[in-house]
Amino acid sequence: MTARALWFLCLIVGSSPEAPVAERKASPPHNRKPDPSGGASTEETPRSQVQQVPEAPRRPRAAAGAEPCARACRADLDERESYCESEFAVNGIVHDVDVLGTGIRLVTLLVDQDGLYKMNRLYITPDGFFFRVHVLALDSSSCNKPCPEFKPGSRYIVMGHIYHKRRQLPTALLQVLRGRLRPGDGLLRSSSSYVKRFNRKRDRQVQSAVHTQCI
Protein backbone atom coordinates (compact mmCIF):
# COMPACT_ATOMS: atom_id res chain seq x y z
CA MET A 1 0.00 0.00 0.00
CA THR A 2 1.33 3.30 -1.03
CA ALA A 3 1.76 6.20 1.41
CA ARG A 4 -1.01 8.12 -0.31
CA ALA A 5 -3.49 5.26 0.13
CA LEU A 6 -2.59 4.91 3.85
CA TRP A 7 -3.18 8.63 4.43
CA PHE A 8 -6.55 8.40 2.72
CA LEU A 9 -7.62 5.43 4.94
CA CYS A 10 -6.71 7.30 8.17
CA LEU A 11 -8.76 10.29 7.03
CA ILE A 12 -11.84 8.11 6.55
CA VAL A 13 -11.53 6.42 9.99
CA GLY A 14 -11.01 9.74 11.87
CA SER A 15 -14.13 11.29 10.44
CA SER A 16 -16.40 8.32 11.34
CA PRO A 17 -19.48 9.26 13.55
CA GLU A 18 -18.88 6.17 15.69
CA ALA A 19 -15.51 7.38 16.89
CA PRO A 20 -15.27 7.23 20.71
CA VAL A 21 -15.61 10.54 22.55
CA ALA A 22 -14.07 11.11 25.98
CA GLU A 23 -16.85 10.86 28.60
CA ARG A 24 -17.11 13.78 31.05
CA LYS A 25 -18.50 13.20 34.50
CA ALA A 26 -21.08 15.81 35.44
CA SER A 27 -20.49 17.26 38.86
CA PRO A 28 -23.42 18.62 40.88
CA PRO A 29 -23.45 22.42 40.99
CA HIS A 30 -22.46 23.94 44.30
CA ASN A 31 -24.61 27.05 44.03
CA ARG A 32 -28.12 26.93 42.67
CA LYS A 33 -30.02 29.99 41.64
CA PRO A 34 -33.44 30.56 43.21
CA ASP A 35 -36.55 30.05 41.17
CA PRO A 36 -37.51 33.33 39.38
CA SER A 37 -41.07 32.95 40.69
CA GLY A 38 -39.82 33.58 44.23
CA GLY A 39 -40.37 30.05 45.53
CA ALA A 40 -37.82 27.53 46.63
CA SER A 41 -35.89 25.68 43.95
CA THR A 42 -37.26 22.26 43.07
CA GLU A 43 -33.75 20.83 43.35
CA GLU A 44 -33.27 21.82 47.00
CA THR A 45 -32.58 19.03 49.44
CA PRO A 46 -35.18 18.19 52.15
CA ARG A 47 -32.89 19.66 54.82
CA SER A 48 -33.14 23.13 53.25
CA GLN A 49 -36.94 22.91 53.24
CA VAL A 50 -37.32 22.56 57.01
CA GLN A 51 -39.42 25.48 58.31
CA GLN A 52 -38.38 27.34 61.43
CA VAL A 53 -40.76 27.07 64.37
CA PRO A 54 -41.93 30.57 65.42
CA GLU A 55 -40.67 31.63 68.84
CA ALA A 56 -43.34 31.61 71.51
CA PRO A 57 -44.21 35.10 72.78
CA ARG A 58 -42.58 35.97 76.06
CA ARG A 59 -44.82 36.46 79.02
CA PRO A 60 -44.56 39.81 80.74
CA ARG A 61 -42.99 39.73 84.15
CA ALA A 62 -45.36 39.73 87.04
CA ALA A 63 -45.85 43.21 88.42
CA ALA A 64 -44.08 43.79 91.70
CA GLY A 65 -46.17 44.30 94.75
CA ALA A 66 -44.70 47.70 95.49
CA GLU A 67 -47.11 49.65 93.32
CA PRO A 68 -50.38 48.09 94.63
CA CYS A 69 -49.09 48.59 98.17
CA ALA A 70 -48.22 52.20 97.44
CA ARG A 71 -51.72 52.80 96.12
CA ALA A 72 -53.32 51.10 99.12
CA CYS A 73 -51.27 53.22 101.54
CA ARG A 74 -51.61 56.54 99.74
CA ALA A 75 -54.25 58.90 101.09
CA ASP A 76 -56.63 59.83 98.27
CA LEU A 77 -57.98 62.86 100.12
CA ASP A 78 -56.09 66.12 100.23
CA GLU A 79 -55.30 67.97 103.46
CA ARG A 80 -58.58 69.87 103.59
CA GLU A 81 -60.73 66.83 102.84
CA SER A 82 -58.82 64.71 105.33
CA TYR A 83 -59.19 67.40 107.99
CA CYS A 84 -62.96 67.50 107.52
CA GLU A 85 -63.30 63.71 107.47
CA SER A 86 -61.18 63.16 110.60
CA GLU A 87 -61.98 63.48 114.29
CA PHE A 88 -58.48 64.63 115.19
CA ALA A 89 -55.56 66.20 113.35
CA VAL A 90 -52.07 66.77 114.78
CA ASN A 91 -48.47 66.96 113.71
CA GLY A 92 -45.86 65.43 115.95
CA ILE A 93 -42.56 63.63 116.29
CA VAL A 94 -42.64 59.84 116.60
CA HIS A 95 -41.30 58.99 120.06
CA ASP A 96 -41.64 55.22 119.85
CA VAL A 97 -43.45 52.46 117.95
CA ASP A 98 -44.59 49.36 119.83
CA VAL A 99 -45.36 46.44 117.49
CA LEU A 100 -47.98 44.19 119.09
CA GLY A 101 -48.53 41.85 116.17
CA THR A 102 -48.89 41.71 112.41
CA GLY A 103 -50.36 45.02 111.33
CA ILE A 104 -50.86 46.23 114.93
CA ARG A 105 -48.74 49.11 116.28
CA LEU A 106 -49.09 51.51 119.14
CA VAL A 107 -47.44 54.81 118.27
CA THR A 108 -46.52 57.60 120.69
CA LEU A 109 -46.30 61.11 119.24
CA LEU A 110 -44.79 64.17 120.89
CA VAL A 111 -46.92 67.14 119.85
CA ASP A 112 -46.37 70.80 120.69
CA GLN A 113 -49.10 73.42 121.09
CA ASP A 114 -48.94 74.47 117.42
CA GLY A 115 -49.31 70.88 116.30
CA LEU A 116 -52.78 70.43 117.76
CA TYR A 117 -54.84 71.29 114.71
CA LYS A 118 -57.99 69.51 115.79
CA MET A 119 -58.60 67.68 119.07
CA ASN A 120 -62.26 67.00 119.88
CA ARG A 121 -61.93 64.40 122.65
CA LEU A 122 -58.37 63.34 121.83
CA TYR A 123 -56.58 62.27 125.02
CA ILE A 124 -53.26 64.08 125.54
CA THR A 125 -50.73 63.84 128.36
CA PRO A 126 -48.38 66.76 129.20
CA ASP A 127 -44.69 65.87 128.81
CA GLY A 128 -42.54 68.94 129.43
CA PHE A 129 -42.73 71.20 126.42
CA PHE A 130 -44.76 68.58 124.46
CA PHE A 131 -47.95 66.59 124.79
CA ARG A 132 -48.01 62.83 124.40
CA VAL A 133 -50.58 61.42 122.01
CA HIS A 134 -51.10 57.66 121.70
CA VAL A 135 -52.34 56.26 118.42
CA LEU A 136 -53.28 52.72 117.41
CA ALA A 137 -52.26 52.11 113.77
CA LEU A 138 -53.94 49.15 112.08
CA ASP A 139 -52.44 47.90 108.82
CA SER A 140 -54.61 45.68 106.62
CA SER A 141 -52.54 46.00 103.43
CA SER A 142 -50.44 42.81 103.91
CA CYS A 143 -47.43 44.59 102.38
CA ASN A 144 -43.80 44.32 103.40
CA LYS A 145 -43.64 48.03 104.12
CA PRO A 146 -45.81 49.18 107.06
CA CYS A 147 -48.83 51.24 106.09
CA PRO A 148 -48.99 53.90 107.34
CA GLU A 149 -45.28 54.26 107.97
CA PHE A 150 -43.90 55.69 111.22
CA LYS A 151 -40.17 56.19 111.74
CA PRO A 152 -38.98 57.18 115.23
CA GLY A 153 -37.58 60.70 115.28
CA SER A 154 -39.51 61.82 112.17
CA ARG A 155 -42.34 64.33 112.19
CA TYR A 156 -45.69 63.47 110.61
CA ILE A 157 -49.06 65.06 110.03
CA VAL A 158 -51.62 62.57 111.35
CA MET A 159 -55.39 62.66 110.92
CA GLY A 160 -57.76 59.91 111.95
CA HIS A 161 -60.51 58.93 114.35
CA ILE A 162 -60.75 58.66 118.11
CA TYR A 163 -61.25 55.41 119.98
CA HIS A 164 -64.49 55.71 121.96
CA LYS A 165 -65.99 52.33 122.69
CA ARG A 166 -64.96 48.72 123.00
CA ARG A 167 -67.25 47.66 120.15
CA GLN A 168 -65.21 49.72 117.70
CA LEU A 169 -62.65 46.92 117.63
CA PRO A 170 -63.04 43.13 117.42
CA THR A 171 -62.70 41.12 120.61
CA ALA A 172 -59.57 39.32 119.40
CA LEU A 173 -57.81 42.65 118.87
CA LEU A 174 -58.85 43.91 122.30
CA GLN A 175 -57.29 40.81 123.84
CA VAL A 176 -54.01 41.62 122.10
CA LEU A 177 -54.10 45.22 123.31
CA ARG A 178 -54.77 44.17 126.92
CA GLY A 179 -56.09 47.52 127.99
CA ARG A 180 -53.23 49.54 126.52
CA LEU A 181 -55.62 51.53 124.33
CA ARG A 182 -57.72 54.03 126.28
CA PRO A 183 -60.84 55.94 125.24
CA GLY A 184 -59.63 59.17 123.65
CA ASP A 185 -56.55 57.64 121.99
CA GLY A 186 -56.19 57.96 118.24
CA LEU A 187 -57.28 55.21 115.85
CA LEU A 188 -55.78 54.93 112.37
CA ARG A 189 -56.75 52.52 109.63
CA SER A 190 -54.55 52.22 106.54
CA SER A 191 -57.46 52.74 104.15
CA SER A 192 -59.14 55.76 105.77
CA SER A 193 -56.49 57.79 107.62
CA TYR A 194 -54.03 60.49 106.63
CA VAL A 195 -50.38 60.04 107.56
CA LYS A 196 -47.70 61.99 105.69
CA ARG A 197 -44.30 63.45 106.42
CA PHE A 198 -44.50 66.98 107.76
CA ASN A 199 -43.49 69.85 105.52
CA ARG A 200 -44.36 73.54 105.39
CA LYS A 201 -46.65 73.23 102.39
CA ARG A 202 -48.79 70.53 104.00
CA ASP A 203 -48.77 72.44 107.28
CA ARG A 204 -50.14 75.53 105.51
CA GLN A 205 -52.82 73.44 103.83
CA VAL A 206 -53.99 72.05 107.17
CA GLN A 207 -53.83 75.47 108.84
CA SER A 208 -56.01 76.78 106.03
CA ALA A 209 -58.48 73.93 106.56
CA VAL A 210 -58.75 74.86 110.24
CA HIS A 211 -60.28 78.21 109.25
CA THR A 212 -62.48 76.70 106.54
CA GLN A 213 -66.01 75.50 107.20
CA CYS A 214 -66.38 71.80 106.46
CA ILE A 215 -69.45 70.76 104.50
Rank of each mutant, 00 (worst) to 15 (best):
V50H: 06
Q51N: 02
V53Y: 04
V53M: 06
P54H: 00
A62M: 15
A63V: 11
A64P: 12
A64N: 13
C69Y: 04
A70K: 14
R71E: 02
C73Q: 10
R74K: 15
A75L: 14
A75M: 10
D76C: 07
E79A: 00
E79T: 07
R80W: 08
Y83G: 04
Y83Q: 00
F88T: 00
A89Y: 08
A89Q: 07
V90D: 03
G92M: 05
I93Q: 03
V94K: 13
H95R: 07
V97W: 11
V99R: 08
G101A: 02
G101I: 02
R105I: 09
V107Y: 13
V107W: 14
T108S: 14
L116K: 10
K118H: 05
N120S: 01
L122F: 09
L122P: 02
L122M: 07
P126K: 09
F129L: 04
R132D: 08
R132I: 11
V133I: 01
V133M: 07
L138H: 03
D139P: 06
S142P: 01
S142V: 05
C143R: 01
P146T: 09
C147Y: 14
P148H: 15
F150V: 10
K151D: 12
K151P: 10
G153E: 08
S154G: 12
I157K: 06
V158M: 13
V158L: 14
M159G: 02
Y163T: 07
Y163G: 02
K165M: 00
R166C: 10
R166V: 12
Q168G: 01
Q168E: 15
P170D: 13
T171G: 12
A172H: 08
L173T: 04
L173C: 02
L173F: 01
L174D: 09
L177I: 12
R178S: 14
R180D: 04
R182C: 04
D185W: 05
G186S: 06
R189I: 11
S191I: 10
S193V: 09
K196T: 11
R197S: 15
R197Q: 12
